[in-house]
Design a protein around this nucleic acid. Structure first.
Lengths: 197, 197, 197, 197
DNA sequence: GTTTAAGCGAGACGGTACGTCCTGTCTTAAC
DNA sequence: GTTAAGACAGGACGTACCGTCTCGCTTAAAC
């Protein structure tokens, strides 16, 4: 994810973790203020009180920097068992809405996704860090439902995953984005119906 | 969508429609070769054998040019009646997959979406030209199902829309993109289940 | 000397000669204010009200730009016949002192000479534009003296040249630089003695 | 010239004189390979097998380091009495040619002079260490000639100095640099003529 | 023999300039 | 008035270098 000194970097002054933190914090601030498209590395460096070299020592490109600054706040936690499949689904949808719909993510996700799809290295990292993590959460919810006897056999994981994340993404970034609660509730209900017979 | 000479454009040499066509064709070629993120207006002009002024006389920004060059191949046609709600859904999904999943769209959509969300004017045009057009197709399919008596009352149109486009988008641009046919079939089946009880 | 479009640059917008002039003027201003070592291309561009691209379209490096801005004011004119060899020598020394000793040259020449000696292309251009031009002036003065019968046979041109320019350069850039008039007079007298018997 | 620990440096590990030597040697090597303008402190440190801190503990700037590494080979020794004014002049010119014309000096002197003229502190040190030293040698040669009765009264020292060093400098750094021996001989003869009547 | 203070190689740090690239506008001559 | 060509101002990019600082260590003199 980050550039590292490799095995040979055993001596010399170690990286200052306060610099790490201030770069990431500044990235998020500048994102919130200007959005992904208008973010510049100089602005982040100035905001962080850091030289550009300190940034490029850590991240090969602006895209990697933004990725590092935002992806951790966009990855899902395994959701607590809510007692039923439909409650689990509702919780998962709320989580996804929270991770993709917070102010920083709203101005970052489309731009980041564009740059991710244009860069094979970022694509791989994105899959690993973001997509796989989400997928695991979806799998856990499906497994629970199977164990509870709510689902006869687990449906195709990728399809469920796409049907959970996709509508939230579409609603946030392509459509009107009105009445988040109603959307979440309706989506949860429809998805429950889709998978339980 | 395009810039026009307005009322003052009554005299002088008329625009050469071959220039129009070659700009759009060149845009699609350059997109296919380099992707949206690395496309430059100079490259399009050179490929089209056209001056940059000829491009900017027609489109105010690079984004508008790409939008114009790609949106027609990404807008849905109202689907022919396939006889049943579930067949209509399957056809719609196939159409959406075809419009977003063709080679040019694959390298264009994420970047274009990013620029669209960063620009209020483009957002409006995108909604009108692309989203509303899709929405109308979805509405038509739902209306048919209601008329056939397959649906008691029509579900929320935005939710249906998000549940159709979103999963396809997620599958194309975030996930592995393997076995398109199986994905389309499974998605169609699940969506039919979701809305008919 | 300058970058040119070559033979193929017959069409398109021509270079704006006001931009040429304002780059060169700004270069001289910034040189006068900050000296050669601290001159930056951004400062010149800002002062000239010009983009950096306009500068790099004309000059491949900062060094070439400074060369172009200063070398013309440092080349000698063929001196008018002053009536005698010793008067011609005195006039030539005054000219050299004027070209190397004006405020801009004083802060430019050492730095420029350093970069010129480090770059083969600039060395060739420097020889052609500056050194050869000087040499021709020295030759003219010697030829006149031979024609007048003041010199039996012309001494080695390179040695005369070095003995004219060298002391002026040394006095300006290595030594105390006090009482220019006295230095010039004494140098002229000594050189006259050196070459006339 | 060098930074020193001052009065407070009574305890602790003493400086390693092998580090001193290897810095100076590496500086000369890098100079010979890349020239003054392209020499970097990192390159010198790497070549010397030394940390940058070891360099900056000894020299405040890159210029001081180069100055220290090269000035000793560029300072004149008081020349032995060659028996006559003209023989002394010839010997002095040979010495100056040797100090400014050796391979390292050839690629160092112009750059160093440029930085020296741009920095008041270095100018003072340069005058003291280099110029005054040369001046003393010239003075000694003149005094001998006066004592021998070859010169009625000693000419202006600064002018003689400029007329000795200047032509050599000009010939080395501005002109073609061909046939060093012939140049030295002719220059010596002309200078002898210039000062003896 | 400790202790202690400075030296050491390595390399991260803030800052600054470089030369390149791209955008959207403007300017030419030709038609 | 449109065309191809390409210059224009502006501004971000990623690299390189400077002189400083920090890490864990070594080393000699002071105790």
């Amino acid at each position: 994810m980050e550039r590292q000194g490799g095995e040979g970097a055993r001596t010399g002054r170690p990286r200052d973790s306060r610099v790490d933190a201030s770069i990431l914090a500044a990235t998020r601030q500048v994102l919130a203020e200007t959005g992904y498209v208008r973010l510049t590395v100089d602005a982040v460096a100035a905001r962080a009180g850091v030289g550009k070299a300190a940034i490029y020592r850590r991240y090969a490109t602006k895209q990697e920097m933004v990725f590092a600054a935002t992806v951790h706040s966009m990855t899902l936690e395994t959701p607590a068992d809510a007692g039923s499949f439909s409650a689990d689904l509702a919780a998962l949808i709320d989580d996804i809405l929270a991770t993709l719909g917070n102010p920083v993510a709203l101005v970052t996700v489309p731009g980041l996704l564009a740059d991710v799809t244009a860069d094979a290295g970022l694509t791989a990292r994105f899959r690993q860090t973001f997509v796989e993590r989400q997928r695991d959460c979806v799998k856990e919810v499906l497994d629970r439902a199977v164990r509870r006897g709510e689902l006869g056999e687990a449906p195709d994981l990728d399809v469920v995953h796409a049907m959970l994340v996709g509508p939230v993404f579409a609603w946030l970034f392509m459509m009107g984005r009105q009445d988040r609660g109603a959307f979440a509730a309706e989506l949860a209900a429809r998805l429950a119906a889709a998978f339980t017979r």
